[in-house]
Amino acid sequence: MSGVGLALRLGVDFVAGVVVGVGIGLLLDWWLGSSPAMLIVFFLLGAAAGTFNVFRTASGQGGAVGFKQARDAETDATDGSDKKRGSNARDDSKSSE
């Protein structure tokens, strides 16, 4: 993928996390009438999730979400099962964990 493509992807990944966080925050505020407490909390959580997204994309874990993959990679490496899983990008996650 080209440099601009990767940059755009990282940007979108980060913003998507923030958008979802702010969306959840606004919905909860509207529902609980706690404006703006939930917005602040979920904005921060969303920013953290966005940073997670960027980290995963940049470290070559593709569209991965969740920790299950990394944990399975560890157990696969120890018990030596030959289960076929993931692309090359996914295989990189084994070494990074």
Partner: peptide, 8 residues
Amino acid sequence: IEIISYLS
């Protein structure tokens, strides 16, 4: 954070 990451 994980759930928000999943929803994004």
